[in-house]
Design a protein around this nucleic acid. Sequence first.
DNA 1: ACAGAACTTTAGACTTAGTCTAAAGTTTGA
DNA 2: TCAAACTTTAGACTAAGTCTAAAGTTCTGT
Lengths: 134, 134
Amino acid sequence: MKTKDKQASEKMLKTAGLQVTAQRVHLCDFIFNQSDHPTAEEVWSWAQKNIDQMSRATVYNTLNSLVDAGLLKTLRMPHSDKLVFDFNVSEHFHFIDEKTGRIEDLDPKDLSWSLKLPKGWKKSSMEVFIKGRK
Amino acid sequence: MKTKDKQASEKMLKTAGLQVTAQRVHLCDFIFNQSDHPTAEEVWSWAQKNIDQMSRATVYNTLNSLVDAGLLKTLRMPHSDKLVFDFNVSEHFHFIDEKTGRIEDLDPKDLSWSLKLPKGWKKSSMEVFIKGRK
DNA sequence: ACAGAACTTTAGACTTAGTCTAAAGTTTGA
DNA sequence: TCAAACTTTAGACTAAGTCTAAAGTTCTGT
């Protein structure tokens, strides 16, 4: 791991109020610098190959801590039973390539919408998945 | 099961090109007349209580056959790891009540939207989940 | 109506993704 | 520096769903 990436991960963890541990720093480096919408199992399988000591529970604990700290969001895709993690935590939508299953971010500016909910219902968040081909 | 419901289920199965069996007729009656966005496990637990002979595999087989035949759609909700079945197969969107987890259909007329995809990308379908409170 | 083919159902083993446990190790802060 | 708080670990466990192959049911052609 590059020194600057290591330092960036450490800083991010600290800023988020999380303890800095070797395992978390390694995982953050992968999640934020080397992966794209990874599933938990992808993170775990990377960790098994690339980190000497790392248990499955630590992977899941770390992912959950990062979500709780607001550094990651979880997505559940209509086409798969796996939980997906997204380090883009600002509002945006997702495109799923039907051929490859690959997930791409869509700029929220590219979807304009207006919603009329029944009286008294209040929207707090919104998920949009576009399926299609490239 | 009411005679007219039984006949309706039989007709629906036939029309869809599926063999009519006692198990499928029972399950269809529940799915189409007595449930609302059920999960597979809800269907299975209903079946255990209400049908003498019914294996878990039959519940899943039947649900999958109904999906293949276009009579049901599957949904994967962002907030749950369970597959949900929807007998409303026409275009519509979903509202999830944050308090209860309950899923409500939204009339597609109540969400107007326009999407600008990158050159060459083609949308084939779209899922929208609104989370909020009532 | 009958035989054989095709399809469906069954119990229970299996798989996959993820959680839990409790003991050992690490980090923090007075 | 020491204790409290937090984190990691291996592996058992759980939940949701799939698979298997044998037995049962329905369909098709005559």
